[in-house]
Nucleic acid binder design. Structure first.
Lengths: 145, 145
DNA sequence: CCACTTGTCATATGATATATTATAAGTATC
DNA sequence: GATACTTATAATATATCATATGACAAGTGG
């Protein structure tokens, strides 16, 4: 099991937009840099737009950021691209036997702990800003990488 | 995306074994309580056995725990059933364009942060013991649930 | 010997992620 | 305003993986 690559595609896209803010960055350019199908890229961009992270206009060329990089966290992106659905990070087997004492109580006894783990992970994501990633990328480029 | 139900199946199985330690708990009984196919259950049990969490013998009826419940954490189980493969929790799009400065540096700039998030989640899992879950289950049963 | 168990293989089914084709609709430039 | 390019999205195909299922091997204990 893995969290969908839409998440890292979104991170990559935002970094690319920022690093090329002096020119028009199109969805096709992003598709070329990520090596991901343009339709998938546009789907991700569409979600980022809906979340208020980027701006785009149908027909008008160029994607731009809607707010400064230090105000975009991994959590914002994770939520925007719907990395983990509402059912939660953990998949509980669906029909424990209600006729078994353990079967009918295991869900209640486990759920809060699973939620706690997921929340801890999400809180960690809130600590990481896109500015962190982009400054690393730019540093590496400057060093000739 | 969700973490495979093998994880919660394993938790359920261990709780069931503990709560019925006075009788023989077979893989079929576990399959009945979890409402999961017996072959899947045996696969999970096989992984728990390999991780040293349970005991079982081919032909001999009954699964038993290999160590006390307070010495089994969610992390132990998560690792045992291979919830997240070696590639990591996050799926990075596979072929960023090496001819693009951002494309060839995004991986290096992002990886450590993704690992950090995963590690935080796994550390939280180490804090939760099976004894916590089982005592909640038993409490609920006593209360008539 | 026999009923039952653990253990495993091979295959089927179902769900989901990504890729692809096609097309609608808006923008900007000539 | 015709044209080339863009964003946007629907419909479908492909690939991968999780779970279910059927079959059977091999061990146990009465």
């Amino acid at each position: 099991m893995q969290i969908t690559s839409r998440f890292t595609i979104a991170i990559h896209s935002i970094a690319l937009i920022e690093c090329n803010k002096d020119m028009k960055v199109t969805s096709n350019i992003i598709a070329g840099s990520t090596n991901v199908n343009p339709v998938i890229v546009r789907g991700v961009l569409s979600q980022l737009k809906e979340a208020g992270i980027i701006h785009s206009r149908q027909g008008a060329s160029g994607i731009t950021l809607a707010r400064p990089l230090d105000q975009i966290t991994f959590y914002d992106i994770y939520k925007a691209v719907d990395s983990v659905k509402d059912e939660g990070l953990f998949h509980f087997h669906e029909h424990p036997n209600p006729d078994c004492p353990v079967g009918r109580n295991i869900h209640a006894a486990t759920d809060s702990r699973l939620t706690q783990i997921q929340t801890t992970m999400e809180n960690e994501m809130k600590q990481i800003k896109l500015s962190d990633v982009v400054s690393d990328v730019q540093m590496n480029i400057k060093e000739g990488n």
